[in-house]
């Protein structure tokens, strides 16, 4: 499968990338690792006429502790996040979900910014980030702004990132030794989640239970009231709108959300 023809622009800095985005408008797409974009271009589900390659911008790849947060550059590859000693110690859930994406070859290419900007509701990293909290930092012609992760993913493949902005960083709170859990249900190990649940510090996020990754609000409220894990997890699918497809029907997804939430909370509590 071969994508439609496009012009290729190599950006050497964030400023160059933003200038190219402004010049080419909505016909342009940013290319980082390309492991979400190129597959949909090969299927011709996306037909950009300009690709702006930001994969070679050196200062977008880093992990830094800054106060109560860990800041990770958008260009950091998922295998680097999976292995990074700082991430493993300060935000172990983030390291884990980065390591659950695809397979080693995919994680060698795929970037943090790419998985955030793609906004696939079945995606591991956004699910982990939504449970962790924190902000997605974007940069545009007017400068930088922070989008809380709770407001970042607005719809199926849609985000709050504007057409002339790019994701430059993700900031997550340091959870350190707090217990966490991540339960992903798949048919094969390197598949997308049929449903997944992430839990840390009383917050729970679900993959593939709506058009975006979502928080299990009723479960979180029940936990805050002092409900048991079993009672709270039984509410995990409230307010969700899972779809039916060849992998699972909606009722089965609801069952999985409750079950995986219970297991994730139990794992978190056992730490």
């Amino acid at each position: 499968m071969i994508p439609t023809a496009f012009d290729y622009v190599r950006a050497r800095s964030v400023d160059e990338a933003l200038a190219a985005l402004t010049e080419h408008g909505e016909d342009a797409k940013l290319l980082a690792g390309g492991h979400s974009l190129l597959p949909i271009m090969k299927l011709r589900l996306a037909i950009p006429t300009v690709l702006i390659d930001i994969g070679g911008i050196p200062d977008l790849s880093y992990v830094r502790v800054e106060g109560d947060e860990v800041a990770v550059g958008a260009g950091t590859r998922l295998f680097e996040i999976e292995r990074d000693e700082v991430v493993r110690a300060e935000v172990p859930l983030l390291s884990h979900v980065a390591g659950r994406v695809g397979d080693p070859q995919v994680r060698h290419r795929a970037t943090l910014g790419g998985t955030v900007a793609h906004s696939d509701p079945a995606s591991d990293v956004p699910t982990g980030l939504l449970a962790l909290g924190g902000d997605v930092v974007v940069q545009g012609p007017a400068g930088r702004r922070s989008i809380p992760v709770t407001a970042c993913w607005t719809g199926f493949f849609e985000t709050d990132v504007a057409a002339d902005e790019m994701v430059v960083e993700v900031r997550v709170p340091r959870t350190g030794s707090s217990g966490w859990g991540y339960e992903k249900f798949t048919r094969r190990e390197n598949d997308w989640a049929i449903v997944a649940a992430a839990a840390v510090e009383g917050r729970v996020a679900l993959a593939n239970m709506a058009g975006t990754v979502v928080r299990a609000a009723a479960t979180e409220e029940a936990l805050a009231r002092g409900a048991s894990i079993a009672e709270a997890a039984a509410l995990a699918d409230q307010g969700t709108s899972p779809s039916s497809d060849m992998h699972a029907d909606a009722d089965y997804r609801r069952h999985l959300a409750r079950l995986l939430t219970r297991r994730a909370l139990e794992t978190a509590a056992a730490a």
Binding site: R10, L31, P39, G55, Q105, H108, R109
Partner: peptide, 19 residues
Amino acid sequence: CTVIVDGLSVKSCTVLTAQ
């Protein structure tokens, strides 16, 4: 289609030559 690019195994069906 796995090959080694700059020391990392990658799937070459999902990498542009330009990259």
